[in-house]
Design a binder for these strands. Sequence first.
DNA 1: CCAAAGAGTGAGTGGTCAACCACACACAGG
DNA 2: CCTGTGTGTGGTTGACCACTCACTCTTTGG
Lengths: 188, 188
Amino acid sequence: MNTERRRQLSSAEERRETVLRTAIGAFAARGYFGTTTTEVAKAAGISQAYVYRLFPNKEALFTAVVERCFARVRTSLEEGAAQAQGSSPEAVLHTMGDTYAHLIADKDLLLALTHAQAAAVSEAAVREAVRAGYARMVEYVRGASGAAEADVQQFFATGMLCHLLVSLDAHEVDAPWSRTLSAGIRHY
Amino acid sequence: MNTERRRQLSSAEERRETVLRTAIGAFAARGYFGTTTTEVAKAAGISQAYVYRLFPNKEALFTAVVERCFARVRTSLEEGAAQAQGSSPEAVLHTMGDTYAHLIADKDLLLALTHAQAAAVSEAAVREAVRAGYARMVEYVRGASGAAEADVQQFFATGMLCHLLVSLDAHEVDAPWSRTLSAGIRHY
DNA sequence: CCAAAGAGTGAGTGGTCAACCACACACAGG
DNA sequence: CCTGTGTGTGGTTGACCACTCACTCTTTGG
């Protein structure tokens, strides 16, 4: 399975990377309180005990996952900005929205961010991570697009609507309400 | 304490009402998975065991709370629609937004809905309740305002942005990103 | 080849949770 | 006053959780 046959053990840093990557899927389903460290361990293919050697506690693990999610979103937005270089601010926002839509074709990332928002209410460390994530994101979108404040706000409001639609699996519902809320929102 | 001195016991229906009312605050803090039935019982002033006589299980309790939240929002929107009777569709939406802003001055209701959205990902019964809640809400807003599809969608996107801002206590953060996202959003 | 350092785990620990049950108390009708 | 019905609780249970520790195995480098 592994190309590197010589080394059977991974370095702790590699394992941490694996955990951060796979834990997104684990937390996506049931969020911070509903997901057990055993589930996270299973997703990463290690023992539950070793999760606690890699991360000091569950909260630190979750905030690290959240930061990883924001980093992935940010990379996606940078890709969009690069594609639309030299276009009008509105076109840049539109292209960013498009690369974002591609990114979240895998729903786990978006769901993890939804759960992070919910956990932010009671967990101070999570709240700080989510605030920092959106802070960087808003600044980046503002700077890279050069769009008006109102358009940037609109960009994020639409993103939040996407969170709802994905949480409810609205694209599987064929009803007027879901068509109204989903109108014009790209989906890959 | 109680005005009705004759009757010391409440009827089960009255107790259920009390639980539904007070449980909103309990679930608002830590959501479906993070809130214990003991906390719900304490908020309602009854024993944990009695919660299970009033509701068959935790999931049914939570979905009943979610339905109650949607009913309160709906009442608020009806109030706004009544105030703006005869105005333009845009004015009706604006007035509805205003009564909504008053309703959620108490954050518990909005936080409970945020947590419901998160729990909807993994709990089918919750997902159904949230879908039904938004379905009724979208239909009502569309019908009562007569606004264009795009304006209705925009109305709900702004509502979702409010969820984020409240979850992060963004109004306590004095930074460009929070000002950008909060611009024009009423707050009482 | 051996010893130190690091990767990784099995087997717990104390605590908490949803759900249950036997029982006590309050009230209304006869 | 007495009995049936509904209100309400203390105590418990078995499962499960976050977190710990003693321990083994693997790798590296001298």
